[in-house]
């Protein structure tokens, strides 16, 4: 489904991704773990070109893009096959909850407003916000905003969902409701790539886990294997330290 080959990213002189290779199969849930500054968010943002990668290949459902020669249509096609959930939610502040979810359908997919409204309302019901349709983002709690963020990403029915630390800016008591929704989404067989600091959540939800440090993938494996018996000392150390907290 997603395949990343030898991906590099430089910010000026700083080499933040140093030849990343990984793939995610259809229906698989993969979490990327690692300390702050390891490049995991950058990696996620390179997949849909919110950051322009320096070189390498990004492939999503058979569409191969050499990042150095990526044209606008290539970037657009990667963006259309991915849906992204942001750490800061990034809901469109000037639009209501319903409009936030609808806008991709009406403006990008050219679906009629009535149809889009119906689809969006259904998705919002799934994330438990059916009674907040006409609210503006500022009138919602962080947890509610992030659930709208998930609904907005789901609405376009993307091949892959990208989650960039979806619970990192939430108050602790709101984390649960968002994680519950993400689990639901995973159960439905969506392909998901998640950058997170919630280790227990990652363990529970993921088919596979990728551990990153210093712009490189140190280790990857099934969730059980990574948590119970990681082969790299650094992974053991990181997981041990974070779980003890």
């Amino acid at each position: 489904m997603i395949k990343v080959e030898n991906l590099h990213k430089y910010f000026d002189q700083q080499h933040v991704l140093k030849g990343i290779n990984f793939s995610v199969n259809k229906g698989e849930v993969v979490s990327i773990l690692g300390p702050s500054g390891s490049g995991k968010s950058t990696l996620l943002r390179c997949v849909n070109f919110l950051e322009q990668p320096t070189n390498g290949i990004v492939e999503i459902s058979g569409k191969r893009v050499n990042v150095e020669s990526a044209r606008k249509v290539d970037i657009q096609s990667l963006r259309l096959s991915t849906g992204m959930v942001f750490q800061q939610y990034n809901l469109f502040k000037n639009l209501t909850v319903l409009q936030n979810v609808m806008i991709g359908l009406t403006s990008v997919k050219n679906i009629s407003s009535n149809e889009a409204k119906k689809v969006s309302a259904e998705i919002l019901e799934k994330v438990g916000l059916q009674d907040r349709l006409e609210h503006y983002p500022v009138q919602l709690s962080g947890g509610q905003q992030q659930r709208v963020g998930i609904a907005r990403a789901l609405a376009l029915n993307p091949e892959v969902l990208l989650f960039d630390e979806p619970t990192s800016s939430l108050d602790p008591e709101l984390v649960g409701e968002v994680l519950t929704v993400i689990k639901e989404v995973a159960k439905e067989g969506n392909t998901m790539l998640i950058v997170t600091h919630e280790l227990n959540f990652a363990r529970e939800i993921s088919d596979r886990i990728i551990f990153m440090e210093n712009g490189m993938i140190l280790e990857e494996g099934t969730a059980e294997q990574m948590f119970t018996n990681p082969s790299v000392e650094r992974t053991k150390q990181f997981i041990g330290k974070v779980l003890k907290k």
Binding site: R79, L80, N94, V108
Partner: peptide, 26 residues
């Protein structure tokens, strides 16, 4: 906010749509 631009790009709005529907009103 930069995040508004990013979210607009991520869902695939064209630069014109992004400006007219999201950025200019704000």
């Amino acid at each position: 906010d930069r995040g508004q631009f990013e979210a607009a790009k991520a869902i695939g709005l064209s630069p014109t749509q992004m400006m007219l529907k999201i950025i200019f009103p704000q």
